[in-house]
Amino acid sequence: MTVEANRDLFVTMLNALGRKDYDTFEACLADDILLEWPFPVMDGFPTEHRGARWFREALETSWVDFDPYAYQIEAIHMLTDPGTLVAEYSSHSRYLPTSTPYSNRYVSVVDIANGRIVRWREYVNPSIVAAILGQKAVWKESSGATVGLE
């Protein structure tokens, strides 16, 4: 794929995620995508995980208490390898239980192959997540399926 096609894939994926269009979002990901969060967003949250279906189900469960995310892309940097990009973006939403605005900033390193995202390493500010969900937010999973937040 071309640099432009890879950039478009990332934009399509992020926009679908923001709208909670999980079908389009998941279609942009390789089935065995490697997801990485070097700075876990809460206790128990994995630093890495594999699988588009797992990620979709985790988001469908954990984002139920949020309005759709309005993502704003500040920059997409294409690297020497046309299959890798670095994206800087922000999200803007509302945490419904308290009607609190939620905004965060992200930097992601994304690898793309055969028209799908195969690796997504996301750097997000976990202290902003804790401020919205509470300092004692805990990620819970049971039998490999996400249950939600405690």
Rank of each mutant, 00 (worst) to 15 (best):
L29S: 13
L29T: 10
L29K: 03
A30Q: 10
D31M: 10
D32I: 15
D32P: 10
I33V: 08
I33M: 08
L34V: 15
E36R: 10
W37N: 04
P38G: 01
F39T: 05
F39Y: 05
P40A: 12
V41W: 00
M42A: 11
M42F: 01
D43W: 12
D43N: 14
G44D: 10
F45E: 00
P46D: 02
E48D: 13
G51V: 00
G51F: 05
F55I: 12
F55G: 14
R56E: 10
R56W: 05
E57N: 07
E57G: 09
A58S: 11
E60R: 09
T61F: 11
T61M: 04
T61P: 07
S62E: 12
W63F: 14
V64R: 15
V64A: 12
V64T: 13
D65L: 02
F66A: 02
F66N: 07
F66I: 01
D67P: 15
P68G: 05
Y69M: 12
Y69G: 06
A70R: 11
A70T: 15
A70D: 13
Q72M: 06
Q72E: 02
A75Y: 03
H77C: 11
H77F: 14
L79Q: 07
T80P: 03
T84E: 13
L85V: 08
V86F: 00
V86Q: 03
A87D: 07
E88H: 06
Y89S: 02
S91T: 06
S91I: 00
S91M: 07
S91R: 00
H92T: 04
S93C: 13
R94K: 03
R94C: 11
R94P: 00
Y95G: 06
Y95V: 07
Y95L: 09
L96W: 08
S99L: 06
S99W: 03
T100A: 14
P101Q: 13
P101V: 08
Y102V: 12
S103F: 15
S103T: 13
R105N: 07
R105T: 11
Y106K: 14
V107Y: 04
V109Q: 12
V109D: 01
V109Y: 15
D111P: 07
D111K: 06
D111F: 03
I112S: 13
I112C: 09
I112Y: 08
A113W: 11
A113F: 13
G115M: 14
G115Q: 08
R116K: 06
I117T: 13
V118S: 14
V118H: 10
V118A: 07
R119N: 09
W120T: 04
W120E: 13
W120G: 12
R121F: 09
V124C: 10
N125P: 07
S127Y: 15
S127N: 10
S127T: 12
I128A: 12
I128V: 07
A130D: 06
A130E: 09
G134C: 13
K136Q: 05
